[in-house]
Computed example of a mutant assay.
Amino acid sequence: MNTSRFRTAVCAVSGAALLAGCTPDVQLDALEQAKTANLARHVSAEFPAEPTVVDDPLGFETASMFFPRSETLVLCDDTLEAQLRAASIAVAAHAPMLVYDTARHADYVSLIADMRTVTVLTVGDVAMAPSSGAMRIRRDPGGIRALGEMTSLRFKEQLVRDVNDAARAVADIDQNDPTWLRAAWADPVTKPGAKAEPFPVQSRRDANMAPQVVATWESSIPSIANARGYGATVTMVPLADPRRAQETLFAMAGLGDNPLIALGSQFGSSEELGFRIRQAERHYRAP
């Protein structure tokens, strides 16, 4: 046998074996690093102490979770263009956001009272008439100039061209760089009587004590906006099941029995999510 070829073959096999042997250790290190990072945050006792799935298409649950009290509120119709504009305002102004459903009008009135809200800004076709007094209702007149006049902030414009990019666009808003996420296909409806009136900007709430928050492209705009308005970072994951995507597992590593907010029913129940995280970690560790 050719000695040179034999040595080459041995080296190739040895190298492959060495790489195969090292790969699990490298992966384990990555998982441990993710767990360490996720567990390093100090989470406020106001949040659940275990994984919690919040299926919140209108924003009620996340508004109550992140904003038990709020002087301001953004309320919009159910079109995506209105939701994007409302989210843009809510995140910049550190305010909660809700999507309006006429069938639940009494619930909005109740939540506004519970939060002790004094200024409501409606975006799009919302069936609430402008009013003044102890609780003010104002209508957004649309356009980028009005955003500055209402909030005293300088907004820039960012086009959202694909509906599937909407959730990520809201999650990625920089609170220090106010941005109108403008739908490329349409602007929100402007109701009669709309004019730019002051909409106070509140202080950021989280004080770096928010839990890990995860979402997918299927998560609702108001739920993401409420987390971002509070000041929490929202991590977008490719799949809801941590057993099916490494990126998802790393975002949730170590949190199977610890604070974690998952936005949307695609994550399963709270109990299922905790189980899946622990199962994914065990499988990942397996030789």
Rank of each mutant, 00 (worst) to 15 (best):
V109I: 15
T119H: 04
D101P: 02
A45M: 09
T151Q: 04
M97C: 11
R85W: 07
T122C: 08
A86S: 03
R139V: 04
L31H: 07
R139M: 02
F47V: 01
S132V: 04
A49E: 15
Y100T: 12
R104S: 14
A30D: 14
A45Y: 05
M150E: 14
A103M: 07
H94S: 11
F60C: 03
L111S: 06
D125I: 03
S152F: 08
F47I: 04
F66K: 08
G148H: 08
V163P: 03
V74Q: 01
R85S: 13
A146Q: 13
P48E: 14
P96A: 00
E71D: 15
R85N: 11
L153W: 07
Q158V: 10
P130G: 10
A49V: 07
E157I: 05
A134V: 07
D77E: 10
T102Y: 01
N176R: 14
T119Y: 06
N164I: 00
P51I: 08
G133H: 13
V74N: 00
E32I: 01
H42W: 11
V160M: 00
Q158I: 01
I112H: 10
A34F: 08
E46P: 00
A63C: 13
Q158K: 08
S132R: 10
T151A: 02
V123N: 07
T117M: 11
L159W: 13
R69T: 14
T117F: 13
N176G: 15
A86P: 07
R136M: 11
N176W: 10
D172F: 04
E81G: 02
A37K: 12
A93R: 02
A113K: 12
V91K: 03
D107Q: 12
I137S: 14
D125A: 11
R69F: 13
M128H: 11
P130I: 05
V163K: 06
M65L: 15
R138H: 09
D55I: 00
V160Q: 00
